[in-house]
Design a protein around this nucleic acid. Structure first.
Lengths: 235, 235
DNA sequence: CGGCATCCGGGAAGATACTG
DNA sequence: CAGTATCTTCCCGGATGCCG
């Protein structure tokens, strides 16, 4: 039928918040399901379609396509073709897209206090690095220098501490003082959960090489906020 | 049929991100449509069902019911019955719920740079106060004291500047140095858009009483971030 | 195989009407 | 005023298939 024309020409897209508030507009841009997690996965640099998908367990290909199209149309993501040798396509955040990191950090910081948070689920290498950036306590890192390396799935990542600051992102683990190889949740259990390395090596498939003393001091730089106390739900 | 049992007992709720990342868990909590805007409307204090609904243009009653139920189950919102005289029911954020304000602020700060942002749409009084909190520039307020009052719809709000700090929330406009009466977007056009008061009084239904010099200095305390420069979408 | 387009089933959101 | 009931519409998720 030609009824579709009617909805087209009517006041506006019905699935949008017609609200001048910046928060509402942000939700117009990144409020759809998966959108912010796609941005999260691009936060450390460009990625291919399949790599994004591999790190977002549960997203289907068509939804990822739709999200990337939408984010590109909004000016948050650009699609680039790599130079001839590796002629594949990658997606990358625009400068403005990278500026969304504080949103991701505040969401994570707040949700870490949720009584329902389960830290044992799947975790991507990117998420781990971003959690380090979020939970880093600069005051504890004053007199500390060194680099931790991570081999998680196919990617290699580094977190470098120097001058009381932290740089966490992709990088070569060759120069690292300590290198963790294994699943990201195991690393998180060590850093945030205080689980001993020995236990994780025995049961969680984690391998650690290098300076284990530095590993312990590195873990001491981060801590999760306390759980929120919440009134009992009396249904 | 009894097929529903199968989906019930399967791995988990299908509509959730099974991801240990705090950001993903936050989206499990407040990622559904309207959820964050409901929280925003409660950010200045308890509200009744109908008042929330009135300030969220477009939300339907059943969706608001579902969101409030979900937020209550998550420990973000509590339902309270007011003391006998006014025996109505209100919804209020828990302490942890109030801690979500930085999320709302970062979303707003980021989206204000969006090329597609349209500040002429509907705006609630609550949104206006929260935008003041977000965009306040403490450095410019050093030697300034005073209170601006706002009468927007049914509610009265105040923004008080003192000691280089801003307090914006509900309050009595009786002591204010200047009082704005009219639609919130008109106030926003004055504060953020630099539109002259005379024009807004003539055309936007705004009424201003009191110290107009203070009004001008008050407006100077806030400014929107510059628009992001974004690559042209070459479809 | 990577990057989509297409079709389908289930479920969430939107609009309206109705009830205590 | 504070929701509930119902119906429609649209989005999400999964499977399949095309195309370079």
């Amino acid at each position: 039928m030609e009824l579709d024309k009617i909805t087209d020409s009517s006041t506006a897209s019905r699935r949008r918040y017609d609200d001048a508030c910046g928060t509402a507009h942000a939700l117009d841009l990144v409020g759809e399901r998966w959108a912010l997690l796609v941005i999260r996965e691009l936060m450390l640099g460009p990625k291919r379609f399949s790599d994004i998908r591999a790190d977002l367990p549960g997203i289907s290909a068509n939804v990822l396509t739709q999200r990337l199209e939408g984010l590109e149309a909004s000016g948050i993501v650009v699609r680039r073709r790599l130079p001839p040798p590796a002629s594949t396509q990658v997606y990358e955040l625009t400068d403005w897209g990278y500026e969304a990191e504080p949103i991701i950090q505040e969401l994570g910081r707040w949700a870490a206090r949720s009584p329902a948070h389960d830290p044992s689920l799947q975790l991507s290498g990117t998420s781990l690095m971003l959690s380090f950036r979020t939970m880093f306590d600069a005051a504890r890192a004053q007199a500390m220098n060194g680099t931790a390396g991570f081999r998680i799935g196919n990617e290699t990542l580094v977190a470098r501490v120097a001058d009381g600051r932290l740089e966490a992102g992709r990088g070569d683990t060759a120069q690292a003082d300590v290198v963790f190889t294994g699943p990201a949740p195991a690393v998180a259990a060590f850093v945030y959960g205080g689980v001993p390395l020995a236990a994780l090596e025995a049961e969680a498939g984690l391998a650690v090489t290098g300076d284990r003393g530095f590993a312990a001091r590195f873990a001491g730089l981060f801590n999760l906020p306390a759980k929120a106390v919440v009134p009992a739900a009396d249904a």
